[in-house]
Write a protein that binds this DNA or RNA. Structure first.
Lengths: 201, 201
DNA sequence: CCTACCGATCGGTAGG
DNA sequence: CCTACCGATCGGTAGG
């Protein structure tokens, strides 16, 4: 009989806030995501929204977590059935390109956008963004190392150099799609990946 | 005897506003650049600042022009003495990497940051950013084409593909410097460029 | 170039 | 989860 909702309802509300937040922040950035706008779009009061997180910064961190779950499901998990090493690295890159091509986040890669927004602002949000990139680069590096060890990539391949170039490919693709709406960009990215991961062709 | 300043003084004030604006916007973004903050740092009133431009959007466009002059002086002009084609392309890439490495804009490449900030917001600022990238890509493409025609790059080289990959290299470098403060990144970028522009090595 | 001001919006809090 | 409110700041204008 209390006006408080049940735990399940509260979790549902929280999830709804986060999903809407991801959509807004993807297009407008994590700062452009304001409590007032969020409340308006969800038909809630500002304090109702803020009560779930405590502060805007805590909301931003929760949104990053939610976006991380999406990235994981879209790019990392599809590659798990593939054999570790070169095969998995190829699937990862294709899932990565597809994730950008399909516009899973309407504003482009959530983390690249957040990195640009926060790289000059010390604090927990910046740290969380950097940490996510560290994890992702490490995963790519591990597969690249396995591929070299298995003899599927030339022995002179530097895994860190390869990861650097794959990240550049993804960023160029993200940029070409978001700023130039270039329909040829995904195929360019695929060619760039092929040149690095299919040395025989 | 009027309180109005002379034309020369007004131009000096305008230039001072723009230089400060470039510094602020480089770190905080073109939206984070606010009239009030600018006025405070310059010891002026808000209306004094705004009077030079008319609106925040006009200020943002003027700031993009100013940043464009800096980029031109730092990256394009140093390459003009080099012979068109492969030689100039190499000098351009080295000047580009050096511009990012030295932190000419403290917040990293001004245009990459502006592209991320505005790619989802239609309007004159977005158009100006896109146009600047078009000009830059066209310049790179032209040099790449010359290099192929001269036989200095393999005849199967696709200039658009090469430019796409060079842009990716620059974006990966910008990202590694700004988010990760990775001191090895400039050398990684140089290796990536060498692999594409020095096919003999 | 200034002061003085406008309505709108920001993140956040008090109290229920 | 709400209403009602806080001080601060936003871009911009009127008038000089």
């Amino acid at each position: 009989m209390s006006p408080r909702k049940s735990v399940a309802e509260a979790l549902g509300t929280r999830a709804a806030i986060l999903d809407r937040s991801v959509a807004i922040a993807s297009a407008e950035g994590l700062e452009g995501l304001t409590i007032g706008r969020l409340a308006g779009e969800l038909g809630m009061s500002k304090s109702g929204v803020l009560g779930h997180f405590g502060s805007k910064e805590a909301l931003q961190l929760a949104v990053l977590d939610r976006a991380g779950e999406v990235f994981r499901a879209e790019v990392w998990e599809p590659a798990l059935p593939a054999a570790p090493g070169l095969a998995r690295l190829r699937v990862l890159c294709e899932a990565w390109i597809s994730y950008l091509q399909r516009g899973v986040f309407p504003g482009g890669c959530f983390f690249v956008a957040a990195a640009h927004e926060f790289d000059g602002r010390p604090g927990p949000v910046r740290d969380a963004v950097e940490s996510r990139f560290d994890v992702w680069r490490e995963r790519l590096r591990k597969e690249a190392r396995r591929a070299v060890d298995a003899g599927d990539l030339p022995e002179w391949t530097d895994p860190d150099q390869l990861v650097f170039e794959l990240l550049g490919m993804a960023m160029a693709l993200n940029h070409a799609i978001q700023l130039h709406r270039d329909p040829q960009a995904p195929d360019r990215a695929r060619r760039a990946v092929r040149a690095r991961l299919s040395p025989d062709l």
